[in-house]
Nucleic acid binder design. Structure first.
Length: 823
DNA sequence: CCGGGCGAGATTTTT
DNA sequence: TCTCGCCCGG
């Protein structure tokens, strides 16, 4: 299966099905003169038209799923430009992904023409990078700073932990990083965090935060959260800078406002709120009128609280921005009434929610189809079989179908089955292209060339491929850097001064430094990125090592690197500027041509959803016959903002979806329910819900009860093809692939692994009654020994106990399987 | 310095 | 079940 890796951020993308936006074919494309008022308002309903034309006060558009919010956003931008004379360069539109940004820009261009190119349409992160590239020297960073992604951050934090001699068991880098991320989202720098530390643990975390920041600065690098926090801090520390940007952006539009975190909210506030008081500086307040603000969102689709998103932002919009107005979009243009009724029923179980009912005049449509599989393989087989049937009977292309699941790990079974039956598919997310080892290695080389201070990347490639520079030599150089207060790179350049370094290592280091310096010269000379990359791969010996390798895996690694070179080539060929370039400057011919930094940025800021396959393009791919496309597999989170004619919502089991870790917590459970709502409302016509009675996780089979979300669907809407009761008999029919799904005809019995597994699970279940425990109880565990129950979550089959086993630490155990005995 | 062997932990969700 | 990091012998 050859995966496709589209160059992130490049414009020409259409959503899998047209995205519900029905603007294609409307007037505007290629016109010299802008569209007329009537054309811009054509086909809009009352509230939509109102939102497009709204003038003045901050506006919140509460847009239910499928209510045409993208349409409102694009039409409004076009309206601002052609009816209200707004300069395109004065417009800032924030979207959730690069792909959404590219799409929006394209649609606006369709309406008002090429001058729309100079608008800022980007994610929060990309917009911040653009601002910081211009301003960050004020904080002592160089504008060529590197952006560290989650993996880089983790690596750095691991180094910090070693440095501070932290017990990794007690302070896992992962947890510290989470804590740091939360602090940054709340705009707390490490000093604030240290001040607020409540206990020893938090003090430790704050200390790690401080050291981590120090290292980032030394490496001239920022992590994801820094991009937002630094921009806000910049505006607060330099009011004149902020005024400049406030003057520039006269119109700010924010999509998916329900998923903004505090830092993002603060950023919008800095740009758009009236500055009522400015106690700290002498800058006259409100020198310019604040920008006109429109935010669009739906509290019911807020699914990123775990990442710091604050639902409060949208709930309290009217309090946060003076004179704010709200427009409600409840008419749905996407789904059948059946699907909407189901979604409404589920989401209405959430308390503390403003009432909202989606409706459509599209008619009832087909009923929802339900299926209960013996196990996850059976469930996947049903899905494959059903897709096969739908495509055979016509009307449905594979590209119209999406399969959703809660966690990435669940994709595997579907892949296995789909491969077996020859169903073409594409997994979005999961192990991403840019996270593969060889790609990260290559990117690390490029980063070093762009920013030699980036010691995380530098140390990554120092001995990759193996060139005889081991831990020992690295430590010597490190201590030299520390002693002379120079960067790791500078220390490498004069490694002969490092005390105790072996001559052998020294020679290797000299060779390495030479290579890097030569490559740097290529970059300085303005060589194309793809050429630089090719040279990196050959001169470093990286490619040779892979090519000489016996490991068949290394063959695909070489292919992936070739793919990366191709991406770089496409990038260099394309006149479209990198995210850090200011379109207005490009227009004015003032910008540098896109270089290495732009390329690296594009690589860092890609999202999963940026890789969603395009709709089968009509005649675009050379002279291939129109392909039926591929089934799309993705997590529910990635599915946000998309829509498909046919949707399979799988793994609907308590403990899977809703996720086990949310079962005991009402707030988290409500977020899971919103996730279910997102999933349900992605479907246009056909919706399937399915679950497996037994599912293997961690190798061991789990018997999961039906998801509570299934019980929340109105019973009369779901047509169950198969239920749990149907297979309680020993003579239960199995649906062979390709056989009729209405049983009775070809009934096959299977004695395969799945059945055996189920029997084993059933036995295990019968053998062990769930012990009833209370906090404080003493228990005996087969391998951990004596322990004390600390806490209990969930009930019945899903009861989970946190048990303190002393030296072994606190374990979370699923009581149904854990070999614990109450004493 | 390197490679193999072994044990522990991982699974929420991602810009 | 798989991957990553650590330890030890060459």
């Amino acid at each position: 299966m050859s995966a496709q890796f589209p160059l992130p951020g490049l414009p020409p993308v259409a959503p899998p099905d047209g995205g519900g936006e029905r603007d294609r074919g409307e007037p505007g494309r290629g016109r010299r003169r802008g569209p007329t008022r009537e054309q811009l308002l054509d086909g809009l309903n009352g509230p939509q038209a109102q939102a497009v034309q709204h003038e003045g006060a901050p506006l919140l558009v509460v847009a239910g799923a499928g209510s045409g919010k993208t349409r409102v956003l694009t039409r409004r931008i076009a309206w601002l430009i052609s009816e209200r004379g707004a300069h395109p360069g004065s417009i800032l539109a924030i979207t959730f992904t690069n792909k959404a940004a590219a799409e929006m820009r394209e649609r606006v261009e369709d309406l008002v023409g090429g001058r729309a190119r100079i608008m800022w349409v980007s994610t929060f992160h990309s917009a911040c990078v653009r601002i910081l590239r211009k301003e960050i020297d004020k904080f002592g960073f160089k504008s060529s700073f590197t952006i560290y992604d989650a993996a880089d951050s983790k690596r750095l934090m691991t180094l910090v932990c070693k440095d501070l001699d932290l017990d990794v068991k007690k302070f896992p880098p992962r947890s510290i990083l989470n804590w740091v991320s939360n602090a940054k989202n709340e705009l707390q720098d490490h000093e604030d965090a240290a001040k607020d530390a409540q206990n020893g643990q938090e003090e430790m975390y704050a200390a790690a935060y401080g050291e981590y920041q120090r290292r980032l600065r030394q490496a001239n690098a920022l992590d994801f959260d820094d991009l937002l926090m630094m921009t806000v801090h910049l505006f607060r520390a330099f009011p004149a800078v902020r005024e400049n940007w406030r003057r520039r952006f006269r119109h700010v539009l924010v999509d998916e406002y329900q998923d903004t975190n505090h830092a993002q909210y603060a950023l919008i506030h800095e740009l758009c709120a009236r500055q009522l008081e400015e106690p700290t500086t002498g800058v006259p307040q409100d020198e310019v009128e604040p920008a006109e603000l429109m935010v669009v969102g739906d509290a019911d689709q807020s699914i990123y609280a775990f990442r710091g998103a604050n639902i409060r932002n949208i709930m309290d919009f009217e309090q946060d921005f003076a004179d704010a107005r709200t427009i409600l979009l409840e008419q749905n243009y996407r789904s059948t009434q059946t699907i909407l009724t189901a979604a409404n029923a589920v989401i209405s179980r959430n308390e503390s929610r403003k009432p909202k009912q989606l409706w459509t005049d599209a008619g009832q449509g087909p009923g929802i189809v339900g299926y209960v599989g013996d196990d996850e393989h059976d469930e996947a087989r049903f899905v494959a079989e059903e897709i096969d049937r739908l495509t055979d009977e016509g009307g449905v292309r594979a590209g119209d179908v999406a399969v959703f699941y809660r966690t990435n790990a669940q994709s595997r079974v579907f892949e296995e089955v789909f491969i077996r039956v020859g169903l073409s598919y594409k997994v979005v997310g999961g192990v991403r292209f840019y996270e593969r080892r060889e790609v990260r290695d290559a990117v690390a080389y490029l980063r070093v060339l762009a920013n030699p201070a980036d010691s995380v990347s530098l140390r990554r490639v120092l001995n990759t491929p193996k060139r005889g520079i081991g831990d020992r030599a690295e430590a010597c150089v490190e201590s030299l850097a520390r002693r002379d207060r120079i960067t790791f790179w500078e220390a490498l350049q004069r490694a002969e001064d490092a005390p105790g370094i072996a001559t052998r290592s020294l020679n290797s280091i000299k060779g390495f430094v030479d290579t890097i310096e030569q490559l740097q010269q290529m970059v300085e000379a303005g060589e194309r990125v793809d050429v630089v990359l090719e040279q990196v791969l050959t001169r470093s010996g990286y490619l040779k090592e892979l090519e000489d390798s016996e490991d068949p895996q290394d063959e695909t690694r070489v292919e992936n690197l070739a793919e990366l070179v191709a991406v770089a080539r496409e990038f260099s060929d394309d006149p479209v500027v990198g995210p850090s370039a200011d379109p207005a400057e490009v227009e004015a011919g003032e910008a540098e041509p896109p270089g290495l930094t732009d390329f690296l940025e594009r690589v860092s800021l890609v999202a999963d959803s940026d890789q969603i396959p395009d709709a089968p393009a009509d005649g675009e791919e050379g002279d291939q016959p129109p392909s039926p496309g591929q089934v799309t597999l993705m997590t529910l989170h990635t599915a946000k903002g998309l829509e498909f004619p046919t949707v399979f919502l799988t793994g609907l089991e308590d403990g899977v979806f809703p996720h086990l870790r949310s079962l005991g917590d009402k707030v988290e459970l409500e977020e899971e329910r919103r996730l279910a709502y997102v999933g349900l409302t992605r479907a246009r016509e056909r919706l399937y819900v399915s679950r497996a009675v037994v599912r293997s996780a961690w190798g061991a089979p789990q018997h999961n009860p039906a998801s509570r979300f299934i019980d929340e669907l109105p019973v009369d809407l779901v047509d169950w093809r198969r239920t749990e009761a149907a297979m309680s008999s020993w003579n239960r029919p199995q649906l062979g692939f390709g056989s009729s799904s209405r049983g009775g005809g070809a009934v096959q019995r299977r004695f395969g692994t799945a059945t055996a597994r189920k029997d084993a699970a059933t036995k295990a279940k019968a053998a062990r009654a769930v012990p009833s425990l209370d906090p404080g109880d003493r228990v005996q565990h087969d391998s951990f020994g004596l322990g004390t129950v600390v806490a209990l979550e969930g009930a019945g089959d899903n009861a989970v106990a946190s048990i303190d086993f002393g030296a072994d630490g606190v374990k979370r155990l699923l009581l149904r399987y854990a070999p614990v005995e109450k004493l």
